[in-house]
C-alpha cells in the first residue's frame, strides 16, 4: 500500500508544437485567419516553420487516487494532452514526471492483422502493451472466455464480422492492469448484450486503476468514474476543479 501511494503523473509548463510538414497551401495566410477558426488550435510560424500549437503551457499534477475527466471540443487538444501524458508525444518544452506503469487505451483495434488468427492478434496486442509470455497465456484464456468467440479464436480475423472484431479488441484492452490508466473514447461499440458485459468489465478496470485520466463524450460514464475534471480549450486549461462545477460550466458554454 505504501508503494501504491507513491504513484504520480505530473506535467510542468508543457508546450506541444506539432510541425506542419506537408504544406500544400504555402501562399495562404493562416495567421490572419486564426480568429475565425472555432475548432482546432492556433497555427503559428516559429523560425520560418509552421506549427500547430496543440498545447500551451499546461501544468497538471495527478497523485494517487486521482480520477479526472478531460473535457473539450473537437480539436481542443484532448488527445494531444493524453498522448503527452502517456509519453507518446514528447513535449516541445516543459517537463513530464511519472512513476508507475502506464497503459494508454486509444483504440480497440491496434495492430490487428486480418490474416492472423484471434490468438495471434491477442499475442501481438499483448506484446505491444508490454506483457510477458506468462501473462499473455493467461490473457488469451480470459479473452477466449470473455469475448465468447470460442473456436473462432483459431480462425483468421478476416473471417470475423465487425462486431466480433470489436469484441476481440475490447476483450484484449480490458485485460490491462496498469497503475495509471489513460483512456480516450474507446467505450462505445458491440451489440447490446456485449456492451452490458463490457461496461461491467470496464467498471472493474477503471476501478482498479490508481490514477485514471478519462476523455469521453459520454457524460454518464465520466460522472460515474471521475471526481475531478479538466476543461481544455484551444490547448489551454480553461477550468479545473471538481467534476460538477467544471461540467456545468462546460455545458453552459457549449449551449
Amino acid at each position: 500500500m505504501k508503494e501504491d501511494s507513491n504513484i504520480y503523473l505530473t506535467l510542468k509548463n508543457i508546450c506541444l508544437n506539432l510541425p506542419v510538414v506537408a504544406d500544400i497551401s504555402k501562399n495562404k495566410p493562416y495567421i490572419q485567419n486564426t480568429e475565425k477558426i472555432t475548432v482546432g488550435n492556433t497555427i503559428e510560424i516559429i523560425d520560418n516553420k509552421k506549427f500547430v500549437r496543440a498545447l500551451k503551457n499546461i501544468s497538471v499534477d495527478f497523485q494517487f487516487g486521482t480520477r479526472i475527466a478531460i473535457l473539450g471540443a473537437n480539436g481542443s487538444g484532448k488527445t494531444s494532452l493524453l498522448r503527452v501524458l502517456s509519453g507518446i508525444y514528447k513535449p516541445s518544452t516543459g517537463k513530464r514526471k511519472v512513476k508507475g506503469k502506464i497503459s494508454a487505451l486509444f483504440s480497440s483495434s491496434i495492430g490487428l492483422n486480418m490474416h492472423g488468427t484471434g490468438i495471434e492478434n491477442t499475442r501481438y496486442a499483448c506484446a505491444l502493451y508490454g506483457f510477458d509470455y506468462k501473462e499473455t497465456d493467461a490473457i488469451i484464456n480470459n479473452v477466449r472466455d470473455f469475448s465468447e468467440l470460442g473456436d473462432y479464436m483459431d480462425l483468421p480475423i478476416r473471417t470475423y464480422s465487425r462486431g466480433m472484431k470489436t469484441r476481440l479488441g475490447f476483450s484484449i484492452i480490458t485485460s490491462v492492469r496498469p497503475d495509471i490508466l489513460i483512456i480516450d473514447e474507446v467505450l462505445s461499440a458491440g451489440d447490446f448484450a456485449f456492451s452490458k458485459k463490457i461496461s461491467k468489465k470496464m467498471h472493474e478496470v477503471l476501478q482498479r486503476a490508481k490514477i485514471l485520466v478519462f476523455a469521453s463524450h459520454s457524460a454518464e460514464l465520466m460522472k460515474m468514474f471521475c471526481e475531478e475534471a479538466l476543461w481544455i480549450s484551444k490547448g489551454e486549461i480553461k477550468l479545473a476543479g471538481d467534476f460538477k462545477t467544471v461540467w456545468d460550466a462546460y455545458k453552459k458554454q457549449t449551449e
Binding site: N113, H115, G116, E120, R123, Y124, A127, G130, D132, Y133, P156
Partner: peptide, 20 residues
C-alpha cells in the same frame, strides 16, 4: 528489454502475408 516480444513480432510480421 522487450527483445523477446519484438523478435516474435518480426517473426509473425514475416509469416502473416503468406498465411493464405
Amino acid at each position: 528489454s522487450l527483445l523477446k516480444v519484438t523478435i516474435w513480432m518480426g517473426w509473425i510480421g514475416t509469416l502473416l502475408p503468406f498465411r493464405d
